[in-house]
Each structure stands twice: as structure tokens, then as C-alpha cells.
């Protein structure tokens, strides 16, 4: 069961602005990627393109050598799942209903969700410690709880490749660690692929095997974490001085103020 997600000569652009003219990266199963860059550098655009949500990206993104745009939609949703940075609307139903929507790519669209779908959704809620709130209305959740519900929805979707756009936003430290540990487990034990946008110089060094840095102006650096996540690279990336912290045999970076 491979699940190699790759982009060749992908152009990242938003209306009126070219962000990066050529992104060519191969993301392989069993790898956990950090995608880092300053605000507005194209991280979200890249995630959308990799998830097949951007029609303009077209033929530049492939899954196991097949152009993603040519894959039937529901199959694509079973292969590649994305945690969006923003949700556009309020959801009227319960937390469990919300998480169940993630099962749509697996469900029979005529008979609706099956017992198994409900079991998977409940398990996903347990993973993010939201099971006690499953009958509550989604709109009654706090910001952090909503973020966990969204993560649970993606876990219920159960894709081969997970693309996460700022998965840690609104989460307290304990849940940040739990979420990252869960995704690390999926990468190690089930050889899934995880690629996530982070805004932190600390977590990537701790959890990610690989990193992709998008510099202002569109230059890239990608590769194994220990080669890419260097102080020089990160100081160039964030245009800010960093201090190195050694802990538990690894070295990490925090803002030097």
C-alpha cells in the first residue's frame, strides 16, 4: 500500500501574486513533514494544491504516479485528507454528526452512514478526548474543542496521506502533544504520510522526520529534518534571531529575544 504524494514544477500563486514558481517535492509514506514559512508565503496554497482542492494546480500533483485531479473524487478523499485552516460556517448538528461527515468518502451515499462509520467516528472522538461531548451541539464547543473535533473528523476520514494546515491552532499544550503523538503513531505504525504546516520552531525538530522551508521570494529547502532544520536556515526563514536549546539528545530552536 504505497501512497507517495508528489508535486512537479508546481506553481504557488494567489490572485495577483506569484508566491513560488517551482515546487518539486516527493512526500513518502512513513514520513512526517513540517512545512514552514512566514505568513503569506504560500503554505496553505501548497496544502490545498496537494489535497487536490486547487484546480489551477492541475496535473502538477500526483499520487503514486497518477495525476490527482484525474482520480475520482471520493477515492481521492479516501487517499488524501486535509485539515483546513479555516472553516467557513457554523455546523448545526451534534459533535458526533460533525465527525461522521468525515466518513462520507467511505459511506454508501444512498443508505447513509453504517454502524462501522459510527464506531470509527466515536473512536476518533475518544482519541481527541471529546467522547463525553459527542452529543453536544458543535456550535457550543470552545475554539480548542472545535479544533479537536475537526482533527477527529479527519481521523475518521482515515486517509493514507494527511495534510494538516496548522493542526495545533487553539490547542493547549497537552493536546498539542497528544495530537502530534497520534499522528506520529500513524506514521510509524501504519506507514501513513503526514505533512503539516506549523508555526513553531520547536515541535518540528521533535516530531518531524522531514521539513520543507518556503523562503520569502519562493526559494525552497527540503529534506531530512536534521539537515534542513538548522539554525542558519531557520534564522533566514523567519528573519529573526534564534537561540539553540539542547534537550534529550536533540537540539531545538526558540526565539532569541
Amino acid at each position: 500500500m504505497p501512497g507517495v504524494l508528489s508535486c512537479r514544477h508546481l506553481r504557488l500563486q494567489v490572485p495577483g501574486r506569484m508566491l513560488c514558481g517551482d515546487v518539486s517535492v516527493t512526500f513518502e509514506p512513513g514520513q512526517m513533514w513540517a512545512i514552514l514559512g512566514r505568513n503569506g508565503c504560500g503554505k496553505t496554497t501548497l496544502v490545498h494544491a496537494l489535497a487536490g482542492l486547487d484546480r489551477a494546480a492541475g496535473a502538477a500533483v500526483e499520487l503514486d504516479g497518477v495525476v490527482l485531479a484525474n482520480t475520482p473524487r471520493r477515492r481521492r478523499a479516501r487517499d488524501v485528507g486535509v485539515l483546513l485552516q479555516q472553516e467557513e460556517t457554523e455546523f448545526w448538528g451534534s459533535v458526533l454528526d460533525y465527525v461522521l461527515l468525515g466518513r462520507f468518502p467511505h459511506a454508501d451515499s444512498w443508505t447513509g452512514f453504517s454502524r462501522e462509520d459510527e464506531t470509527r467516528a466515536t473512536q476518533a472522538l475518544e482519541t481527541v478526548e471529546l467522547a463525553p461531548l459527542s452529543a453536544r451541539r458543535y456550535v457550543s464547543l470552545s475554539g480548542g474543542e472545535r479544533q479537536r473535533a475537526r482533527i477527529a473528523q479527519l481521523l475518521a476520514q482515515d486517509p493514507r496521506a494527511f495534510l494538516l494546515d496548522e493542526p495545533l491552532q487553539h490547542l493547549d499544550l497537552q493536546h498539542q502533544a497528544r495530537v502530534l503523538a497520534r499522528f506520529q503513531q500513524l506514521v510509524r505504525d501504519e506507514r501513513r504520510l503526514v505533512a503539516m504546516v506549523l508555526h513553531d520552531a520547536l515541535w518540528p525538530g521533535r516530531y518531524c522526520t522531514h521539513a520543507l522551508l518556503i523562503y520569502d521570494g519562493g526559494a525552497l529547502a527540503s529534506g531530512a529534518s536534521r539537515e534542513v532544520l538548522t539554525r542558519a536556515n531557520l534564522e533566514r526563514l523567519y528573519a529573526a534571531p534564534l537561540a539553540e536549546v539542547s534537550y534529550d539528545g536533540g537540539s531545538y530552536f526558540v526565539p532569541h529575544v
Binding site: H48, L53, R73, E87, E88, F91, F104
Partner: peptide, 23 residues
């Protein structure tokens, strides 16, 4: 009614519906 689940997804957001495989 036959498109009911897809409508639930569309109500949750266009991008979300697209990412979960709705045309």
C-alpha cells in the same frame, strides 16, 4: 433527500465538501 449527506457537507463549507469528495 437522496443528496442529503452531500447537502450536509455543502452546508459545512464548500472547501470541506470538496475535500471529502463532493462534486
Amino acid at each position: 433527500v437522496a443528496q442529503g449527506i452531500r447537502l450536509d457537507l455543502l452546508a459545512a463549507g464548500e472547501l470541506k465538501a470538496l475535500s471529502l469528495g463532493v462534486a
